[in-house]
Amino acid sequence: MLTPQDLRAKAAIVGIAESDLGDVGAQRYAIELAGQAAYRAVADAGLGMKDIDGLFGCVMGRFMSNLDLGEYLGIQPRYSDSGNIGGSSFISYLFHACAAIQAGLCDNALIVYGSTPRADGLRRQMPKGSLERPNYEAPYRPRHPVTGYALSTARHMHQYGTTREQLAEVAVAARAWAQLNPAAFTYGKGPLSIDEVINSKAVCSPLTVRDCCLVTDGGGAVVVTRADRARDLANPPVYMLGAGEAHSHRSISQMPDLTTTCATESSQRAYAMAGLGPTDIDVLQLYDAFTINTIMFLEDLGFCAKGEGGAFVSAGRIAPGGSLAVNTNGGGLSHCHPGMYGIFALIEAVRQLRGDAGARQCPGAEIALAHGNGGQFSSQVTAILGTGAAL
Results as ranks from 00 to 15, higher is better:
Thr291Trp: 14
Leu286Cys: 00
Arg269Val: 05
Asn293Cys: 15
Phe297Asn: 10
Asp280Ser: 11
Ile281Glu: 09
Phe303Asn: 11
Tyr271Lys: 05
Ala272Arg: 15
Gln268Phe: 03
Val283Cys: 11
Thr279Asn: 14
Ser266Met: 06
Gly275Trp: 00
Asp300Ser: 07
Leu276Ala: 08
Tyr287Asp: 12
Ile295Met: 07
Phe290His: 07
Glu299Gly: 11
Leu286Asn: 02
Glu299Ile: 06
Tyr287Val: 01
Asp288Gly: 01
Phe297Tyr: 15
Ile295Pro: 01
Gly277Val: 03
Thr294Met: 10
Asp280Thr: 00
Met296Gly: 02
Glu265Asp: 14
Glu299Phe: 07
Phe303Pro: 08
Gln268Ala: 15
Asp282Gln: 12
Glu299Cys: 09
Ala272Glu: 14
Ile295Gly: 00
Ile292Gly: 01
Asp280Val: 08
Asp300His: 13
Asp288Met: 00
Ala274Leu: 04
Leu286Arg: 06
Ala272Asn: 10
Leu301Glu: 02
Leu284Lys: 06
Arg269Ser: 09
Asn293Met: 14
Tyr287Glu: 01
Ser266Gly: 06
Pro278Ala: 15
Ile292Asn: 09
Glu265Pro: 00
Ser267Ile: 11
Ser267Gln: 13
Leu298Gln: 05
Gly275Asp: 01
Gly302Lys: 11
Phe297Gly: 01
Ile281Gln: 12
Ala289Phe: 03
Phe303Val: 04
Ser267Ala: 15
Val283Met: 13
Gln268Lys: 15
Phe290Leu: 06
Leu286Gly: 01
Thr264Ala: 12
Thr294His: 04
Gln268Thr: 12
Ala270Val: 09
Gln268Asp: 10
Gly275Val: 00
Met273Trp: 05
Tyr287Cys: 09
Thr294Gly: 08
Thr279Cys: 09
Arg269Cys: 03
Ile281Leu: 07
Ser266Lys: 07
Thr264Tyr: 00
Thr294Ile: 07
Ser266Ala: 15
Glu265Ser: 13
Phe297Trp: 09
Thr264Ser: 08
Pro278Phe: 00
Thr264Trp: 02
Ile292His: 09
Leu301Asn: 04
Met296Gln: 15
Tyr271Ile: 08
Glu299Asn: 06
Gly302Trp: 00
Ala274Gly: 13
Tyr271Met: 05
Ala274Trp: 04
Asp288Thr: 00
Glu299Arg: 10
Phe303Glu: 06
Leu276Glu: 03
Met273Cys: 13
Glu265Trp: 11
Thr291Ser: 15
Ala272Asp: 13
Gln268Val: 10
Leu298Thr: 03
Tyr287Ala: 02
Gln285Thr: 09
Phe297Lys: 11
Gly302Cys: 04
Thr279Pro: 02
Ala270Cys: 10
Asn293Trp: 15
Thr264His: 12
Glu299Pro: 07
Thr264Leu: 14
Glu265Gly: 03
Thr291Met: 13
Ser266His: 07
Met273Gln: 14
Ala274Phe: 10
Leu284Gly: 02
Ala272Thr: 12
Phe303Thr: 08
Asn293Tyr: 13
